[in-house]
């Protein structure tokens, strides 16, 4: 029964949601199920908070190497949460100040560091080792230079604009033709995969989501 009941629930709810998409009669039941989904999503945050406290708290208690970082993380988290819960998140609150002047710049800085690592990785790895890699490299050059004004200036300076404007080459050909065809193939393949896996779950063929085997 421990396996059969979840499988029956999954099958019934899944089939109902598929049928409901085509029928306006079921609207109010779909509304209710959507609300349930939102509530479950919020519980995932609670699960995340619990996991964060247990993992970091454990390292602090054991004074594991680098426990200071865990302490900073946990303290920052609890302080921000506390300000948010007790003061609210309006514009004049401490929570908003933390968001605007601590979290915002820190998060942007972390992301900006990527540029340096990408440059270093490109220098080490982006090599024309095969015909496919060379083609990829050439396309990357055209898009990378063509997507910035200096590229257009260079294109124009060698009189290639008369042949085909840089924008047209990228928008119409590279992005509009080759890229669209590739993206569409990936999208269709992935969508058929999703349908197939969904059917396997609904029909009880795929049971890994139940845990165990």
């Amino acid at each position: 029964m421990r396996r059969e009941v979840p499988l029956i629930i999954t099958f019934c709810v899944g089939m109902f949601m598929i049928c409901a998409y085509y029928s306006p009669i079921t609207e109010q039941y779909v509304d209710r199920l959507n609300e349930w989904f939102t509530i479950v999503t919020v519980f995932a945050y609670i699960l995340g908070i619990g996991s964060l406290i247990i993992v970091n708290g454990g390292k602090i208690a054991k004074t594991a190497p680098g426990w200071g970082y865990n302490a900073v993380l946990l303290l920052s988290f609890l302080l921000t949460l506390g300000f948010g819960v007790f003061q609210g998140i309006k514009e004049d609150t401490t929570f908003y100040w933390i968001f605007q002047y601590v979290y915002n710049p820190l998060s942007a800085t972390m992301f900006a560091l990527l540029a340096f690592f990408i440059a270093s990785a490109a220098f080490r790895a982006f090599k024309a080792k095969s015909p496919e890699a060379t083609l990829l490299l050439l396309m990357a050059f055209v898009v990378m230079i063509g997507r910035v004004p200096i590229g257009e200036l260079m294109w124009d300076s060698v009189h290639l604009n008369a042949l085909m404007p840089m924008n047209e080459l990228i928008d119409k050909w590279i992005m509009g033709a080759f890229n669209t065809a590739g993206q569409r193939a990936i999208l269709l393949g992935a969508s058929i995969g999703v349908i197939s896996v969904s059917l396997k779950i609904l029909l009880g063929v795929e049971r890994s989501y139940l845990g165990g085997d």
């Binding site: 990408i118 440059a119 490109a122 220098f123 982006f126 490299l137 990357a140 050059f141 990378m144 230079i145 997507r147 910035v148 200096i150 590229g151």
Partner: peptide, 8 residues
């Protein structure tokens, strides 16, 4: 972008 191209 130009610098990345030069590096590559």
């Amino acid at each position: 972008h130009m610098m990345m191209v030069i590096l590559i």
